[in-house]
């Protein structure tokens, strides 16, 4: 994965110099370990800023909404699926984009790493599938595959689905059971489910980082900011919190690609993907739909087919 960067820089430089794009959206090194920042590169000399490693978990499709420029964007599997969703939802035009596809082998779970060590992590480097973590008085080498973000470890679309350029050969897709934990919750009785989510959301502070990191959340006025009528209370009361997470998940139904940006952005490490993934699973099982795989197909929630399931209607 580390070797990609030369190719990324080379392609980006070419695109800007040939005036094919006005800017490149990619990652630059963050000021803290494991926190690469998105960056816009507009001139060939800035191309050197771009980096690529296993800390590029932010979904760059988020930065495309309603842009007018011609854009070169670096896209992992999940980014590319969200780009497709953006195109389907008329938030950007395919002609505006040059997609630099990056086959991905997963991103590191920074929440997990931070909680694994007492002291502050000062440096994280990777080499040949191993991660070296350095702090003031410790140093440890871990296997990257053991510390992947959970959504990456169950990812089945690691390769970009649309791209104009590709920085390396495609990687092998995983064959995993995506919904084991969702099924576990489905099997619980109602009371237990309620408590499970109470527990899950108990630390939420309503900072809306998950919403802001999400490439799907681009409504001009989000439902939580509406005040007339006010559907969702603004407090950190457990019911308000639950209403927020629940409705947000509904807004993402049939659109979520499980890129994990929400979970990654969460400052208290809530796994809110337990909501979105249930809907993702339902979409897959009832409509055979996975978001962002094709530019020609309309999503299930805006098409009608006579064979759509309707058992829930009396």
């Amino acid at each position: 994965m580390l070797g990609y960067i030369d190719k990324i820089r080379q392609i980006s430089k070419g695109l800007i110099e040939d005036k094919k794009v006005d800017m490149i959206i990619g990652f630059k090194k963050g000021t803290m370990p494991m926190m690469n920042e998105p960056c816009l590169v507009k001139s060939p000399k800035d191309v050197e800023k771009l980096v690529w490693d296993s800390n590029c978990g932010i979904n760059l499709a988020n930065y495309l909404t309603d842009r007018k420029e011609r854009i070169g964007i670096i896209a992992k599997g999940c980014d590319s699926r969200n780009i497709v969703t953006h195109i389907i939802e008329n938030k950007i035009k395919r002609e505006q984009l040059v997609i630099i596809g990056v086959p991905c082998t997963g991103m590191i779970d920074k929440h997990r790493l931070t909680s694994m060590f007492e002291g502050e992590i000062e440096q994280v480097t990777e080499q040949n599938g191993n991660i070296t973590i350095k702090g003031e008085d410790f140093e440890e080498i871990l296997k990257k595959n053991d510390v992947l973000q959970q959504n990456c470890s169950v990812c089945i679309h690691r390769n970009p689905v649309v791209y104009d350029e590709l920085v390396s050969d495609l990687v092998e897709e995983q064959d995993v059971d995506r919904y084991e934990d969702v099924r576990k919750i489905e099997a619980m009785p109602s009371e237990k489910k309620w408590n499970y989510f109470d527990d899950l959301l108990s630390t939420c502070i309503r900072c809306y980082a998950c919403r802001n990191a999400c490439p799907l959340c681009y409504c001009p006025t989000c439902f939580v900011d509406e005040s007339r009528p006010q559907w969702v209370g603004k407090s950190d009361d457990s019911i308000d919190i639950r209403t927020f997470h629940f409705l947000r998940a509904y807004h993402c139904a049939g659109r979520c690609t499980d890129c994990g940006a929400c979970e990654r952005a969460c400052p208290v490490g809530i796994n809110m993907r337990m909501f979105t993934r249930k809907l993702e699973k339902d979409c897959f099982e009832q409509y055979g739909w996975e978001a962002g795989l094709s530019l020609d197909e309309r999503p299930p929630l805006d098409t009608y087919k006579p064979e759509d399931p309707d058992d829930f209607i009396k």
Partner: peptide, 10 residues
């Protein structure tokens, strides 16, 4: 909208 149903329960 789902928010109507939730509002009712709330």
């Amino acid at each position: 909208s789902p928010k109507f149903a939730l509002a009712a329960l709330r």
